[in-house]
Design a protein around this nucleic acid. Structure first.
Length: 369
DNA sequence: AAGGCGTGGCC
DNA sequence: TGGCCAAGCCT
């Protein structure tokens, strides 16, 4: 029983910070996520990439599916980019998948199939920056280098009272210094696995964005935000700008139960993914239709949908047309006729998947009627 | 050095 | 409801 005579919890400073987090993780942290309890750099790397800007709950299913299809780094390196993207479709930030694939091939060709072990070496690989490299090094090899992801930024800005938007160079630099200083002043025998995981667990389960659970935080007695009731003010909010509204038209061209898909360029939105042919202006869509011997009308116009990206909003107007026969054309890697019942195996952006799902449902119910 | 890059969950 | 954010990296 705690009484007035018991000693208060010790203050946590830069010297004791790391040990406090490590100890807390061992007793109160998460220990059963699918990518824990392994030292396999392939699995750890895959999880770290999937978890970039993506929540744990979203990643878990993708992670299992991906590993089942690509059990080893060598399997991934051998696969086609289309296959990899198909298993990434819906997860977003598709450059991650393209880089993941390139990275697998780099490790096979330049590192003899063995994942490099130091944070510096790991950070030279495509799609792996300083923080992800440190996490992979810590979890796979016990490497001692600091991470700085969204969780850690939230914990550090609150604990140390760092004001200013974390997206600016100045604040980012300051937070990296803190992250490094904690390791420099920490014990030589610090367990880097539990410390690194502990920082993430603290941010995910205690030091959350809204309603942080300060009463169950191991750092609460020394936390700037807790002592100053500044949890809501930290981390400082991002200065928001108006996001532009754009519109486009998408062509749903059906031939029997096949739909025309177009491969998007490697760079830009939805890079490398299959997509419905997209046009900024209706006139351009109408012109494209001439080549297929069809003409869009009010009948073919479908309900518009609104899709929101980080930096703009896109209003999509789909046009549904049916062609009787396909004109002969040169074989082309940039478009294909895809059977509607195979869409799940194709890498498609979320709104396109949604549109075509509706098309398929509509066809199925018509056939029944 | 700031902005591009997806999607889903949360309140 | 819409605005904000989540295990960042690249250019």
């Amino acid at each position: 029983m705690t009484t007035a005579t018991s000693t208060p919890p010790p203050k946590v400073g830069v010297e004791t910070f790391a040990q406090a987090v490590s100890n807390w993780q061992k007793s109160e942290g998460r220990h059963h996520l699918p990518w824990q309890n392994t030292r396999d750099p392939y699995r750890i790397w895959l999880s770290e990439i999937m978890l970039q800007q993506t929540q744990v709950g979203t990643v878990i299913d993708y992670y299992h599916r991906f590993l089942k299809r690509f059990p080893t780094l060598a399997d991934l390196a051998r696969a086609s980019q289309a296959d990899v993207l198909a298993y990434w479709a819906g997860l977003g930030y598709y450059a991650r998948a393209r880089n993941l694939h390139r990275c697998a091939q780099t490790v096979m060709e330049q590192w003899g199939g063995k994942f490099p072990e130091t944070p510096e070496q790991i950070a030279t690989l495509p799609g792996i920056g300083r923080s992800t490299a440190a996490a992979i090094a810590a979890f796979s090899f016990g490497g001692r280098a600091p991470i700085l992801d969204g969780n850690v930024k939230r914990v550090f800005t609150r604990f140390f009272g760092v004001f200013g938007y974390t997206g600016t160079k100045a604040v980012e630099t300051e937070l990296w210094s803190i992250a490094q200083a904690i390791l420099d002043h920490g014990p030589r025998d610090l367990d880097m696995i539990s410390y690194t995981q502990g920082l993430m667990d603290l941010g995910a389960t205690r030091c959350t964005r809204t309603k942080p659970d300060c009463t169950h935080c191991p750092l609460t007695t020394s936390c700037y935000a807790n002592l100053n009731n500044a949890q809501k003010a930290l981390p400082s909010a991002r200065p928001r700008k108006l996001v532009p509204q754009r519109e486009c038209h998408m062509l749903i061209l059906l031939h029997n139960d096949n739909v025309l898909l177009e491969k998007r360029p490697q760079t830009g939105i939805w890079g490398g993914l299959w997509c419905l042919p997209q046009f900024n202006e209706f006139d351009a869509l109408e012109n494209a239709c001439v080549n297929w011997g069809v003409k869009p009308s009010a009948q073919s116009k479908m309900a518009t949908l609104q899709h929101t990206f980080t930096h703009f909003k896109l209003q999509i107007t789909p046009w549904w047309l049916t062609v009787k026969r396909i004109p002969l054309a040169e074989p082309n890697n940039d478009y294909c006729w895809q059977p509607l019942n195979l869409l799940a195996d194709t890498g498609l952006p979320a709104p396109v998947q949604k549109i075509l799902h509706g098309v398929r449902q509509s066809l199925l119910s018509n056939n029944k009627a």
